[in-house]
Design a protein around this nucleic acid. Structure first.
Lengths: 271, 271
DNA sequence: CTGTTAGCGCTTTCAA
DNA sequence: TTGAAAGCGCTAACAG
């Protein structure tokens, strides 16, 4: 398979070429033991000459670790999750791990199937960037292998969570606009059945309430996270703002905030 | 590892539980041969009872195929490539393949490292959604394993290319606007050192030339594909259009075209 | 139709 | 410091 011949160079061939035993080559490859310098050099030369690349499947089978991590993303065609995947991939590859990617598409079944696939692949751990599955199922999964979960906080020995404070986050964002003197503040929410989206809306409302600003139903529209500008900013909505100034999507601090913890929460205000 | 005990249920345990030989279980799993109905049922029951999930590494080692495909994407934090990855993942998973994802980040070295990683993982094939590597290197790679390449057309036995006609594509898009009666047509190009971007610009110019429309340098700006709206549409640029109507980014046929073959090519015209 | 027998390529005791 | 040998869990001839 590899560049050399047809089915891939094996560790044994390297050993023969270098005049040592397979175990010695393995030791050098893994730094498992000290090997005489001359042999190290001989082996390295053989590896280079034969263009040897260790067979990951064999390693996984013999060693018990696959050196691969499963990453579940709901919708990869979204810059938000794309950024996450890119960062994960970068860190993992640098650490020598492979990234097995599966997409959940916000559907329980798809996600479940994907996870089963990963488990069968014997990944050493799973990263769930937002999950649709019920708490209990995730906790059960984490008993089988280490799990990293974002967007939810759950107890569990090998269940590591990474969550954001959605309510306070949205409230902070809203209060930022209020502090600037705005009082007609619009809110593009995520899908109403999305827990995060709901919490953010709650934060927005809390801010208004705290500052005794009346709610205007028309100022709250439902987006879908995928392209807030295109989906939610219908001509009707824009007209309903009856404003002279609208923050352009790609500038100012609000945009940055979106990329962090208040995704989907954006404020528009009349001058 | 799997849900049951600790290190994963093996095919042999299933065989014992069902009172058959390991090969029979394997045959049922792979549909490699006809097995008496009673045994099939017994095995299926054992599989369900033990929650058996075949060890992919062992399968790969024994069978010679890893049932996994490597996918190289340059910048996943871009809806354009995100969409591609999503589609690839969906089709591959359905076919029983795993997706090993690596990101190239538009850097030759990163891409090369990623490909080596994939080869070592013994993927059954590699999909390169745009590559930075020289032709010869890709052709060499395709001698080691099947390769699918987008954005370039190269000859090669196991090198399958998927390319778009950048010049005619951009020309068509431009002529579409011309046909609508527009004559001041702006062009947001990709990075000028990107072959595709150059070809598209060429197509745009060809259209203008063919229709004897003079080029206006200010109407051509350089974007970076990552967020054309934000990067290229500077206030200065928008002002230079001195127009009353600008196609909104997310509506109309131009948007669709972008998602297909003329990404980065967008027309703006004065009423 | 089904069991037995070899490995796949690597890691890892266990001796030397 | 190093080699020999025994698997890891599964597939694939090869006989019955």
């Amino acid at each position: 398979m590899a560049d050399g011949g047809e089915g891939g160079v094996t560790l044994e061939q390297v050993a023969r070429e270098a005049g040592v035993s397979p175990s010695t080559v393995s030791r050098i490859l893994n730094g498992t033991a000290n090997v005489r310098d001359a042999k190290v050099r001989a082996v390295q030369a053989a590896i280079a000459k034969l263009r040897f690349m260790p067979n990951a499947a064999a390693r996984a089978l013999a060693g018990g670790r696959s050196m691969s991590i499963g990453v579940v993303i709901q919708a990869i065609d979204s810059p938000f999750y794309g950024e996450a995947l890119a960062a994960i991939e970068k860190a993992l590859l640098r650490a020598g791990y492979s990234v097995l990617f599966v997409s959940g598409r916000w559907r329980e079944d798809d996600e479940r199937r994907g996870i089963d696939h990963l488990v069968s692949r014997r990944v050493d751990g799973i990263i769930l960037v937002t999950s649709c599955l019920p708490d209990a199922e995730l906790q059960r999964l984490s008993r089988a292998l280490p799990v990293v979960l974002t967007g939810r906080a759950l107890p569990g020995e090998r269940l590591h969570c990474l969550d954001t404070d959605a309510v306070p986050g949205a409230r902070l964002a809203t209060e930022h606009l209020i502090a600037q003197g705005h009082s007609r503040i619009a809110f593009i929410s995520g899908p109403v059945d999305h827990p995060d989206a709901r919490q953010r809306l709650e934060g927005y409302r809390a801010a208004l309430r705290a500052h005794r600003i009346p709610r205007v139903p028309q100022l709250v529209v439902e987006g879908d996270y995928s392209d807030a500008c295109g989906t939610a900013l219908t001509p009707e909505f824009l007209k309903s703002l009856s404003s002279t100034a609208v923050c352009p999507p790609a500038t100012g601090p609000v945009k940055r905030a979106r990329a962090r913890s208040t995704e989907g929460t954006r404020g528009f205000a009349d001058g």
